[in-house]
Design a protein around this nucleic acid. Structure first.
Lengths: 186, 186
DNA sequence: CGCATGATTGATCGACCTCAAGGTCTGTGG
DNA sequence: CCACAGACCTTGAGGTCGATCAATCATGCG
C-alpha cells in the first residue's frame, strides 16, 4: 500500500476494513496505528512531504484518496493556514517519534536520546550544542522520560564515568557526542 | 500559566526561557513537553477548543500570544482547511492520550484500555460494541501495545477467567464493560 | 497428511521500581 | 555569619513485572 518514506500524495479515508501503520527501525517494527472506517491516513505526512510509516491492510479494505494539490497551491491569503497545517503535521510526527523512542527502549537509550535532542535544540537556537544549562530538575527529566528519578540519576552518573557527559548542578557538557548518539540510536 | 482544560484562546510562541507541559491524571502527573525558544504551545488544543495539559514555566520565560479568532472566522472557501486543521489537532491529541496511557501503565491496564477503545470505535460505526471481530493477530495487538505477545495472551486469558471478556479466534465479546473500564482507568 | 504459522503455557532472568538512608544545596531568619 | 529547614540529589538493597526462551498445542493450507 504505502511504504515508509514514500512521497506524500494525499490523505486516505478508510471506508471499510482495517489497516495498520507501522514504523520500521533497524531490526524491529512497531505498529503505531490501526485504522478503522472513518479514520484518516497520512495526517503525519503532510508536513514532511513523505509518509511516516508503512501502511498495510489487516483485512480487505476500501479507501478513498484525497489528492493534496490543494495545500501546495494555496495562494498568499491562505499562506498562514498552510503554514499552520504543516506545523501541526510536523509537530505530530516529531512527537510520535519521541514517544516511540521512549516506548520500548531501555533507560540508557532514552537518557542519551534526551541529551542529543537537547543539544540539537540548543544548536538550532544558535547556542553551544556542547555546553548548556537545563533549568529543569532531575526529577522532571525522569518524569519526562517515564522513569524513576533514581534511574535517571544512576544513568547520568554512569555516562559521566564513561566520559560521555559532565553534569554539575544544572550545567551539562556533552563530551562525546558520537558516543552518546551511538547509544541513543542503539 | 495555562491549566489543563482551560478554553482555547490561541497559540503561544516561546521567545526565551523554558516551559513544561504536563498531563494530570488521578494521582500522578506526566511531563509531556519541554518548550524552548521557537516552539509553539497549544497545537493540541485547537481541535477540542481547550488546552490538553497544564503549562508552567521552568525558568523565567517570554511568550507571544497568537489569538485564534482566525480559525473560527474562516468563510466557506476556507472551510475545508479549517476542518483539516481541527482534524489534525484532534488526531494529535488523541494519539498522545493513547501513547501516554501506554507509557507507564501496567500491561493489564493497556489491554483493558485497548478493548474499551475498540468497543468505542465499533459503537461509532454503528456496530455492536459488545461483540466484534478484530482481524489482527495477537502478536499485532501486543506489538501495538508494546508488550510481548505472550504477555497479551496471558492477560486476555485472565480476563476470560474473570468473566470480563470472551475470545474465540478473532471474535471477541465484552461481557463486563464496567469491569474492563475500571481496570483501564486504574 | 506434512508443514507453517500462530496461540498458549511454563520456567527463568534481568531491568527497573520501590523503599530507605544519607548527602548536598539553597534560602531564610536570628 | 551561623543554624536550620526543605527540596533535591545520590547511593544501596531488595522485590517485581514483564521479556525471553523453550516446548507444546491449535489452526489453516497446499
Amino acid at each position: 500500500m504505502i511504504n515508509q518514506g514514500d512521497p506524500f500524495e494525499g490523505l486516505y479515508i478508510v471506508h471499510c476494513g482495517m489497516l495498520k501503520q507501522s514504523y520500521q527501525r533497524r531490526y524491529d517494527e512497531l505498529i503505531t496505528h490501526f485504522f478503522l472506517p472513518g479514520d484518516v491516513i497520512g495526517l503525519d505526512a503532510i508536513g514532511y512531504r513523505c509518509y511516516a510509516g508503512t501502511v498495510a491492510t489487516v483485512e480487505t479494505s476500501g479507501l478513498r484518496l484525497i489528492p493534496f494539490r490543494c495545500i501546495e497551491d494555496l495562494s498568499s491569503p491562505e499562506a498562514r493556514l498552510k503554514e499552520l497545517i504543516c506545523c501541526l503535521s510536523e509537530a505530530m510526527h516529531d512527537e510520535h517519534t519521541r514517544l516511540w523512542q521512549i516506548l520500548n527502549q531501555p533507560s540508557d537509550v532514552k537518557v542519551a536520546g534526551f541529551f542529543i535532542t537537547m543539544s540539537y535544540k540548543f544548536r538550532n537556537q544558535g547556542c553551544s550544542p556542547h555546553s548548556f544549562r537545563l533549568p529543569m530538575s532531575r526529577q522532571e527529566i525522569a518524569n519526562y522520560l517515564c522513569m524513576a528519578s533514581e534511574t535517571a540519576c544512576r544513568i547520568i552518573k554512569r555516562f559521566q564515568k564513561q566520559g560521555l557527559l559532565s553534569a554539575r548542578g544544572h550545567e551539562y557538557c556533552i563530551l562525546d557526542p558520537e558516543g552518546l548518539t551511538s547509544i541513543a540510536e542503539q
